[in-house]
Design a protein around this nucleic acid. Sequence first.
DNA 1: ACACAAATTTAAGTTTACTTAAATTTGCAG
DNA 2: CTGCAAATTTAAGTAAACTTAAATTTGTGT
Lengths: 221, 221
Amino acid sequence: MTVSVDDFVKTIYKQSVLAKADTKLSTISGLLNVSNAATTDMARKLAQKGLVNYTKYKPLTLTNEGEKLALNVLRKHRLWETFLFQTLGLSLYEIHQEAENLEHFTSDFLAGKIEEYLGNPETTPQGAPIPSFNGQIHVDSSQLLLSEAEAGVTYEVSRLSGSEKDFLDFCRSNGITIGAEINIEKQYLSGKMTEITIDKSKILLHEDVANIIYVRRLVNH
Amino acid sequence: MTVSVDDFVKTIYKQSVLAKADTKLSTISGLLNVSNAATTDMARKLAQKGLVNYTKYKPLTLTNEGEKLALNVLRKHRLWETFLFQTLGLSLYEIHQEAENLEHFTSDFLAGKIEEYLGNPETTPQGAPIPSFNGQIHVDSSQLLLSEAEAGVTYEVSRLSGSEKDFLDFCRSNGITIGAEINIEKQYLSGKMTEITIDKSKILLHEDVANIIYVRRLVNH
DNA sequence: ACACAAATTTAAGTTTACTTAAATTTGCAG
DNA sequence: CTGCAAATTTAAGTAAACTTAAATTTGTGT
């Protein structure tokens, strides 16, 4: 498979798991930074290869085959991220950039070796689940978005689901790291803003941030 | 730089360091598995980019800039080989295949991190020198080809300069590994065949093999 | 139910990295 | 120093992955 095919199915996959998010052709074009015409062409081509379900003017969806490919690319991406962080000591931001390139040129064999070396981790350092070789992905139903968390309750951070430098820098400099304890003070306008306490300091989070941080309710609180 | 540019300069570089080997356009085409027409096109293009010296009908050579690029690609290739062997435990044959893919998508930054992690190794597990970031490559003048070694003298294996599975399998199953001691029994037809003793067994090597194994004279023998 | 803006598709064209086949140049044998 | 084979270049064409611009389809508002 080529880089553009990998990226195409990966993008549709990511978009489709964001439950309410649509897979409109123009959304995919936007995420891939290509014209709609290019996306139409690619959709046709991959429909013919049995990776994408394509009907003119309809949203794009993956076939089982296509989803399998997407998960395999995601698997390699996340194994690299974990490896680059744990073994080579790159930062959370750096690992994303490098993994983005390496993922397309990693054999299944090598991916398996990395996984084994790491001791079969369930998630990346940002808390993202790593799909298994046969396309299984462990969905942690105990976690929810910070924007949907309940006021007055204490949670622990379980996943930082963003790869922008700004976002990761912001999280780190405010102590928002995997495992950190967060108390929800108040939700404003049903999640448009979320006020939290972390390390005794109060922060007001914009929904753009609270929508990509997952938390898990702490049992002993 | 694209994969084809990387591979083009890498191939010219490798060919030109094989002292007597020529860099005829058709030789390069052969090694890259493309037509002569494709090589002519690429040569023109890279001449314009200042990487290759190109004069119609003349052999291909690299500019300083081109050699720098070739060494940088080779550096990444060899760092990956060393890493995949030492850290992830792949075989000598497997590392070549994987490194061939990864080398083109590795940032200078990541290469540096790998180098650091490995403790700045001088050579790969096959004994090939690893170019430094600034394009320096340590040529070990104490080593020579097995086909040019002197009869009656004992050497140690210092480099296996081939990446074919057959070759590496042959070496391993006959104890020809880096550091192994070899006694030269006799050179036939000035290196066309080389008779050696290793681990007390006598082997007659064809020049194809003796021309890609480097040895170093042992001082205490 | 119809008009019209937004989304999508089609058409035509570009660049990169190739191909084959024909034309040209080189260098060597006699 | 001529003639010819081998090497190289030129010419023309292909496939992938894009682009912009024009044409078409969809769905929403009244």
